[in-house]
């Protein structure tokens, strides 16, 4: 019996041994990340004395007004940014869905923002939203033909929290909207075209076809987009770092604690909190979906 078991394990080993280095590498790092994050967050240093394990760092971070502010800012960032990215992706997806000529060409163009390195996009926005010059300021001040004047004086985009985080959001959305588009497009393509014909013959105009056929049938895709993209919004670092450095989101707060304050312990705490927020978001979302599913099915 035992011998057979050994033989079986040996055969298994013979089959899967190429897998082991990669698995060890990945799982090893996973463990390192986990252990270090927990250990660091439970460490507190003051005047050269190191306390471990302790919840002092947690307390330190929670009572730091910067943290609360960053948490609220990030929550707003997620709550506003995700629907906006959904709408942008839906807009692109609808265009692609209904185009028949040049479809592949237009599709390649729509995918471009994803291909550009995030840092490049952030730099581009840095240039465009410059103060006091910059294309955007000049555009809004009506200095170009065919565009009305919307503001009197140039805006200092990076000097106001609202504006700086706003343009970070714009950059992130611009860059990632192809992903939403692809997911929504897959959902749109799965709708039987005859449903539209059928609805037309029953008197449904385009608005009604969108409301009663398209939207309900792409709810799974919309859910996927909202879930995935909201998680990405929590994690976003590069855009706020380049464009809104002073106004911390959780991600830039981590950087600030680590580099500016040399406090890797506080940074780890914030990192853990970010992971926690992501998990909560995902969980809440799944609960919400279950609730909606029940409601829709019953009615």
């Amino acid at each position: 019996m035992f011998l057979e078991w050994i033989k079986k394990q040996g055969k298994l080993f013979y089959e899967i041994w190429p897998l082991i280095p990669a698995a060890a590498y990945l799982i090893g790092f996973l463990i390192i990340i986990g252990i270090y994050l927990i250990n660091l967050s439970l460490t507190f240093a003051n005047a050269g004395i190191i306390y471990y394990p302790t919840l002092k760092t947690f307390y330190d971070v929670f009572s730091n007004p910067k943290f609360l502010h960053a948490l609220i800012s990030t929550t707003i960032f997620v709550v506003i940014g995700t629907p906006l990215e959904l709408i942008a992706g839906l807009f692109l997806a609808l265009i692609l869905y209904k185009s028949f000529i040049f479809r592949n060409f237009i599709r390649s163009i729509f995918l471009i923002p994803l291909a550009i390195p995030a840092l490049v996009t952030a730099t581009l926005l840095f240039i465009l939203f410059d103060f006091p010059g910059g294309h955007i300021n000049h555009l809004l001040m009506g200095k170009y033909p065919l565009f009305p004047q919307l503001i009197q004086e140039a805006l200092n985009w990076r000097a106001s929290e609202f504006l700086a985080l706003g343009i970070s959001m714009i950059g992130k959305i611009w860059r990632d909207m192809p992903i939403s588009m692809l997911i929504l497009l897959a959902g749109l393509n799965s709708i039987d075209p005859e449903l539209f014909d059928s609805a037309k013959t029953m008197g449904a105009g385009i608005r009604q076809r969108i409301i009663y056929i398209i939207l309900p049938l792409i709810i799974p895709s919309i859910s996927a987009v909202v879930l995935l993209r909201s998680i990405e919004m929590w994690k976003e670092f590069i855009f706020p770092f380049v464009l809104a450095g002073k106004y911390n989101l959780l991600s830039t707060l981590i950087e600030s604690f680590y580099n500016d304050w040399g406090n890797s312990y506080a940074a780890s705490v914030v990192a853990l909190i970010m992971v926690f927020c992501i998990i909560i978001t995902a969980y809440l979302f799944i609960l919400l979906m279950e609730y909606f599913k029940k409601r829709i099915l019953r009615s």
Partner: peptide, 8 residues
């Protein structure tokens, strides 16, 4: 998140 795993 990248920013979370980069610290450890």
């Amino acid at each position: 998140p990248d920013i979370a795993s980069v610290i450890p």
